[in-house]
């Protein structure tokens, strides 16, 4: 992929990256501030949320998040 192509796709890639980061950071903050999970521990959830893009935070919020 050369530079001209990259420039053409930039308007699509920037929002995509922002969305991924926003979701990832929200999930990371939640993991760190609410240390009660339905299963697993803090290290596991941090790894899942940070390294698996989009799917990781969704799995955390739907399955792993403990009751407040």
């Amino acid at each position: 992929m050369d530079l001209a192509m990259l420039r053409e796709y930039l308007p699509l890639l920037i929002p995509l990256v922002i969305l991924q980061f926003a979701l990832g950071i929200t999930a990371l903050i939640h993991v760190l501030r609410h240390p009660a999970y339905r299963f697993g521990n803090k290290v596991m959830w941090v790894i899942i949320v940070v390294f698996i893009q989009i799917i990781g935070p969704i799995i955390y919020f739907t399955l792993g998040r403990g009751e407040d």
Binding site: Y9, L12, P15, L16, L19, Q20, A22, L23, T26, H30, I54, P57, I58, F61, T62, R65
Partner: peptide
């Protein structure tokens, strides 16, 4: 508060951007 709204909107937004891409 249960982040379901966030998940729904982000996932559909990601789909929306990736479809044409």
């Amino acid at each position: 508060k249960t982040y379901k709204l966030l998940i729904l909107l982000v996932v559909f937004a990601v789909f929306g951007i990736t479809n044409p891409l």
